[in-house]
């Protein structure tokens, strides 16, 4: 179980990204975070594995205080939390295999990994992970040669290599077209259901949220403004959705929902 308590983040330039946000995530949930751009979704996800240092509050994961962990402990925590990104964040010049293997960096001997040496077991695991996302054929290619959807699947394979308990997905489909969006979220849903990996994912489109989320939280200007169960989100109307997004964004969200449908 992941508990987020009174989480606050103020950036150096004074921007308040999160204000006193608290919620819990049970194991095995597919939690979707919704909210406008700049509402703090990315910051929230990055606070969970401390890519962004929280200013205040705490994050307790299975009884361990993530926010208080020293660097070695933090690396041990991070390696159990996979992460995928809107822009995939692959090392474009490296091969697909190297990108996937880099998911093991938290586990392997640091010096061996600097020479690009990974245990045979890891190489097998990488092959399996690539098979699982359907990219066996692309193993030797450069990441930059792949299409957007394929790159995101490499991102998923990289996260899988961490044998994660949680996967953080920051707008994983925002750079992809709708058909690919379903393919990627389908992959995540399968990991959620088959491997029992908790997914915390930020999304924009209402129909995707309704289709995949088991629970939803909404952020506006860094504050938690909505919490809903699967059933509540399924019965949600566009108007309610817009309320979370704020009236001023009405046209934009309506447009994007329309475009999606």
């Amino acid at each position: 179980m992941l508990e987020v308590k009174n989480l606050t983040k103020v950036y150096d330039d004074g921007t308040v990204a999160l204000r006193n946000v608290s919620f819990t995530v049970d194991d095995g949930e597919f939690l979707v975070v919704i909210g406008l751009s700049g509402s703090g979704k990315s910051t929230l996800l990055r606070c969970i594995n401390r890519l962004v240092e929280p200013t205040d509050g705490s994050i307790i994961w299975d009884g361990q205080d993530v926010t208080a962990a020293d660097p070695p402990d933090l690396r041990n925590i991070r390696r159990k939390i996979g992460m995928i990104f809107q822009h995939f964040n692959l090392v474009k010049r490296s091969s697909v295999l190297t990108n996937v293997l880099s998911g093991r960096l938290g586990y392997v001997t640091p010096w061996a990994s600097l020479l690009n040496r990974f245990p045979a077991a890891d190489r097998e695991a990488a092959a399996k992970a690539l098979e699982r996302v359907g990219l066996t054929e692309q193993t030797r290619k450069r990441a930059s040669e792949l299409s957007g959807g394929q790159q995101q699947r490499v991102g998923i394979a990289r996260a899988l290599m961490q044998e994660p308990s949680i996967i953080l997905a920051d707008e994983p489909v925002a750079s992809l077209d709708p058909v690919l969006a379903h393919s990627i979220l389908g992959n995540l849903e399968r990991l959620n259901q088959e491997d029992d990996i908790t997914i915390i994912c930020s999304l924009h489109y209402l129909d995707l949220v309704q289709r995949y989320a088991t629970r939803v939280i909404g952020l506006r200007d860094g504050e938690l403004v909505y919490e809903g169960t699967r059933d509540e989100i399924r019965s949600m109307t566009d108007d309610q959705f817009k309320q979370i997004y704020g009236e001023e964004a009405e046209r934009i969200t309506a447009g994007s929902i329309g475009g999606e449908a």
Binding site: I77, L105, G106, Y107, G155
Partner: peptide, 28 residues
């Protein structure tokens, strides 16, 4: 591109590993 640096850090890699896997490949 700072993205890969973030992604490699998120796997639990240490500083040297991050340089070797995220920064050097971009610079070579």
């Amino acid at each position: 591109d700072p993205g890969p640096i973030e992604a490699i850090q998120a796997t639990g890699a240490n500083r040297l590993q991050t340089i070797a896997y995220a920064i050097i490949p971009q610079m070579i």
